[in-house]
């Protein structure tokens, strides 16, 4: 899962940074009075910044095209699901949801086909986060009143999926959830 590799990546970087700092700290205890720090500090700094800049540049150019706004942009969704979030429920429906009389229905989605969720909110800001059957967050968008966010996703595994709210929306925030099936 993406989260696991993120955590490992982070822990490795954190460990490297800590080792560098600990090493630097102990170097200052050396009983060698002649030492007066780093020579050619400016040149070393230049290389350090250059390496940092290049690695961040590579990282950015690899990750930016994977942003959700660019994924599946050229495909035609096989199904549109309307989502209206409200305190404290998600209404999902294949038909449009009437703001004055909002009702949802149970949803079954096809696997390996592109689905588009059109997400909006009837009151405050909510999050629309999709969790798979192992309760791992797989994708999300925000539900903002007055706007419709179109979230596209292809579910590769059939099963039960849960929707949780990820934006504080009041005291019922943690119980706000919904489910749908993928076949």
């Amino acid at each position: 899962m993406q989260q696991d590799s993120i955590l490992h990546f982070f822990l490795i970087l954190a460990a490297i940074s800590t080792i560098v700092f600990v090493f630097v700290f102990f170097s200052s205890w050396q009983d060698d009075t002649n030492n007066e720090g780093v020579k050619n500090a400016l040149r070393k700094r230049f290389w350090f910044i250059l390496i940092l800049l290049v690695s961040l540049g590579i990282f950015a150019s690899v990750t930016i095209p994977k942003s959700p706004y660019f994924l599946f942009a050229d495909e035609v969704p096989s199904k549109i699901i309307h989502v209206s979030a409200m305190q404290y429920a998600f209404l999902l429906s294949e038909k449009n949801i009437d703001a004055k009389n909002p009702v949802g229905e149970s949803i079954i989605l096809p696997s390996n086909r592109l689905v588009e969720f059109r997400v909006t909110s009837l009151d405050v800001n909510h999050g629309f986060a999709i969790y798979n059957s192992e309760m791992q967050l797989i994708t999300q968008t925000q539900a903002m009143p007055g706007y419709v966010n179109s979230l596209r996703y292809k579910f590769d595994k059939p099963g039960k999926y849960q929707v949780l709210c990820l934006e504080l929306c009041g005291v019922g925030h943690p119980v706000m959830q919904s489910t749908f099936k993928v076949q």
Binding site: E94, I97, A99, K100, T120
Partner: peptide, 12 residues
Amino acid sequence: ISTLDEEKNIYE
């Protein structure tokens, strides 16, 4: 207009 009226019948 009611905000969600335009969303009616979409993809029907």
